[in-house]
């Protein structure tokens, strides 16, 4: 049986970026972190991290990570055919890192990203900022700054398109 799927465009993600920026700014101030380095996870996380970097006035160039080689499902699905180079154009040692992704779901991507990050050096601290937390965690990982929280059934897919404009879409089967 064919079930038509519908796409809900939640719309412009700019207001979520603003919320996220505000939370992150407050958190960094509270912790006394003046010079964080932002690292976006491909692809959506990189777009968001660049926005955050501009809004927070961070001078350190943006870090980018593609966690394809760190995924825990290689023995089931192999390597993603469009893997991009990871680039951290700063010394990770003793830096306060803000890891950025678009959607936090099972937490497995963040587990992989943390492992990759620590292969570059020993950061002073790591904060996690995500645009959307949709619940459904399978590993003990939580975000420090969140644009919005959504409770979605597992069958729904949530996707960020961008980079300009940044739009959030939810696909309902």
């Amino acid at each position: 049986m064919f079930i038509p799927s519908s796409v809900i465009t939640v719309g412009d993600a700019e207001f979520l970026i603003e919320t996220l920026t505000g939370q992150l700014r407050e958190l960094l101030t509270r912790r006394g972190i003046t010079d964080p380095a932002l690292v976006g996870i491909h692809t959506g996380g990189v777009w968001i991290a660049e926005r955050l970097r501009q809004q927070l006035g961070v001078l350190t160039p943006l870090g980018q990570m593609d966690i394809a080689f760190y995924r825990d499902d290689f023995s089931r699905i192999g390597v993603h055919p469009q893997v991009r180079p990871s680039e951290l154009p700063f010394d990770v040692d003793n830096r306060h890192i803000v890891l950025v992704d678009d959607v936090l779901y099972t937490g497995r991507t963040i587990r992989a990203a943390l492992n990759e990050l620590f292969d570059y050096g020993r950061p002073a601290s790591v904060l996690l900022a995500v645009l959307v937390d949709r619940g459904g965690r399978e590993v003990p990982i939580e975000a420090d700054a969140v644009g919005t929280r959504l409770q979605l059934p597992a069958s729904d897919q949530i996707q960020l398109t961008g980079p300009d404009p940044l739009q959030l879409r939810i696909q309902v089967p």
Binding site: F69, Y70, F74, V79, P85, S86, E87, V92, N115, F118, D119, Y120, G121
Partner: peptide
Amino acid sequence: GVAERRVKKLPT
């Protein structure tokens, strides 16, 4: 780029 990192190894 892996060869230029601290840990020259991937878990793949």
